[in-house]
Amino acid sequence: MSAMSGKVIASTALPSDYLSEEEIAEIEHERTLYPDTRAVGLEALKIVQKQRGWVSDESLLAVAEYLGLPVAELEGVATFFNLIYRRPVGKNVILYCNSVSCWIMGCDQVREKVSEELGIEFGETSEDGEFTLIPVPCLGDCDRAPVMMVGPDLHRNLDRQDLGELFSRYRNNQD
């Protein structure tokens, strides 16, 4: 059904060959916070995504094997939550609020400008690999609507922002 189909993943490699030492250390820390391995599974997906940008089939399999969780179950979890990305994303993920307060304040019109600026619609990644545009429910800053996040940063009152300048700051930020 999902991204797992149509592709055989080499399962001879040990997950510890795939997961970095840093990732394993973080996963082991999470183990101390939850009494059950399943809870660590979702945290491990977040850890891997933080390092690699998204959760590939290989990542998912490595996490499942490392923690001894059924692959299908972990995949079910991975595809449920919208902040786990099962497809590659750009360097900067834009979470664009399209909930009701932002809608009243014109987020659809601003979103058209965003799309024009970056050449992408919802669900797409810009050609230069810099930006992925994703809709997100209410970001909880409704008195300064419309709002969006770029990476970890919240941007407010978007109707009064120079979007071209805003995005170029992220493009030029090479770290």
Partner: peptide
Amino acid sequence: SAGRYICGEETALLNALEG
């Protein structure tokens, strides 16, 4: 959290917390 509005429902939240 890894997202989804339904997690605000307290028993859904507990399931999410359990992974």
